[in-house]
């Protein structure tokens, strides 16, 4: 059975792009969330194997969502996908519980490598 993924990004464009990349590689995108709050709710409902998480989002940002999800499930596997590649922010996300970080824009191969690493 293929691994399941929840894609969280406030931009429908980016959710579509990430979902397409993952679906074409054989992953099952079980849900999409457009802010951190939705991601936390959908994580509890869907229990995906992996979450891809943007950082800058309205209502609740990605780093706060990572903290809440890992509090609910310390084994959660979350891959940050953000246009903000500042070292301090990357470290903050990893400290919050994210497993890896890719900076947008990305080539499909870069996302898939990171996904494989996080799921390994």
């Amino acid at each position: 059975m293929s691994s399941t993924v929840l894609v969280c990004d406030d931009a429908v464009f980016m959710r579509t792009m990430v979902s397409d990349i993952l679906s074409q590689a054989g992953f099952t995108v079980v849900g999409e969330a457009e802010n951190g709050k939705q991601a936390v709710e959908k994580y509890q409902q869907l229990k995906p194997d992996l979450v891809t998480m943007d950082i800058i989002m309205p209502e609740m940002g990605g780093i706060e969502a990572v903290k809440q999800i890992t509090q609910l499930d310390p084994s959660a596997r979350i891959l940050m996908c953000s246009a903000m590649g500042q070292q301090a922010l990357v470290q903050e996300a990893l400290q919050a519980g994210a497993r890896d970080f890719v900076v947008k824009p990305f080539q499909p191969s870069r996302v898939l490598e990171a996904v494989q690493r996080v799921l390994a």
Binding site: F13, M14, S82, M84, K104
Partner: peptide, 17 residues
């Protein structure tokens, strides 16, 4: 519009990084 917002987001993100 979502694509253009994301273009602005990515430009600003790269610029500020």
């Amino acid at each position: 519009q979502s694509a253009l917002k994301e273009a602005g987001n990515i430009l600003a993100g790269a610029y500020l990084t």
